[in-house]
């Protein structure tokens, strides 16, 4: 089966964006622009063609732009990596956006660079990094006038190493460019914690949640958290105390996890933004694996399949019920 993929080069993207505005097909265009820190981009929210001048189409597409669809209503052009496209699928299924309102420019993602990790591997400070060049499965790092070749496992974000869906699942155009390299996902490392006795699990998470300052960055950055008002902030009744007491932190993180179950696509934004570096992806991945095992459900890959907590099967597992 052959399919025609409407490709757009990185130079062509600017024209495409302008054309979308000119033809009034979109009210906004979401992309990336250069950040103040090297090797990091920040989201660009273009309201008209001219705004697109700042569009950055080289590399470093960290942010999951689907997040901004919470606030931006109307027809939107949007850049989306594989994981972001899964967020879009989830949001369509959750009734938050309509497919016909989106013009999706897919980024066939080869993994996102983690500058901190790269610097560590190159034994330098992140500020000392001068250049990060992709060479197929490897990276050439230049820092302090020296050049080092590093493997992708040393440079890419952990979540990207075992990404199963680097190619966007839904899109209208697909971006081409030299950062597009074939990706061969590696198997996700076994989470050792899962095999540990329950007391050790408690000890581990206790240590993690103890540090949580309840800044809610994980929630605010999460595209799957789209409620107009988060239940965590409800006080009639109060579901959880707002104070960062450890017990309440436990409750908060479990609430968050239960509420994104089925919508979370493990885009990893929550962990990326956590200021105290709680390994939230461990929780997300456990939940993702459980959903697959229990209900044969994978989030964000199928527009048709019912979300796991909106349906049931009579033969669903119930070995845990007396």
């Amino acid at each position: 089966m052959s399919e025609i993929i409407p490709e757009v080069s990185k130079d062509g993207l600017l024209d495409l964006g302008k054309k979308l505005f000119d033809e009034r097909r979109v009210d906004y265009f979401l992309g990336y622009k250069k950040g103040t820190v090297r090797f990091k981009t920040i989201p660009l929210i273009a309201r008209k063609g001219e705004d697109l001048q700042e569009l950055w189409v080289e590399d470093f597409f960290h942010a999951n732009l689907s997040l901004y669809l919470k606030e931006i209503k109307g027809r939107v052009g949007i850049l989306a990596k594989g994981c972001d496209s899964r967020s879009l699928v989830s949001l369509i299924k959750e009734g938050q956006i309509k497919r016909e309102d989106l013009y999706i420019v897919g980024i066939p993602c080869a993994g996102q660079v983690d500058p901190g990790k790269a610097a560590k591997a190159a034994s330098c400070e992140p500020e000392e990094l001068e250049e990060i060049i992709r060479r197929n499965q490897e990276f050439v790092i230049r820092a302090n006038g020296q050049e080092k070749t590093l493997s992708k496992t040393q440079v890419l974000l952990d979540k990207c190493l075992f990404c199963q869906y680097p190619r966007p699942l839904i899109f209208d155009s697909l971006l081409t460019g030299d950062y597009v390299a074939p990706v061969s996902p590696v198997a996700r490392a076994q989470d050792d914690l899962r095999q540990k006795p329950v007391s050790e699990k408690w000890a581990f998470w206790s240590g993690q949640f103890e540090r949580c300052i309840r800044c809610y960055a994980c929630r605010n950055v999460c595209p799957a958290c789209f409620c107009p008002r988060c239940i965590v902030e409800e006080n009639m009744p109060q579901w959880v105390s707002p104070l960062p007491a450890e017990g309440d932190n436990f409750v908060f993180h479990l609430m968050r996890l239960l509420h994104v179950a089925g919508t979370c696509v493990s885009c990893g934004e929550c962990q990326r933004v956590c200021p105290v570096e709680i390994p939230l992806m461990k929780l997300n991945e456990k939940m993702t694996d459980d959903l697959r095992e229990l209900f044969d459900f994978v989030a964000g890959v199928d527009l048709e399949k019912a979300l796991p907590f909106r349906t049931y099967r009579q033969e669903d597992p119930q070995d845990f019920i007396r």
Partner: peptide
């Protein structure tokens, strides 16, 4: 309605 996200889970349930 002030709290509703219109996700319509309720409709399916």
């Amino acid at each position: 309605p002030a709290l509703c996200s219109l996700c319509k889970t309720c409709v399916d349930i």
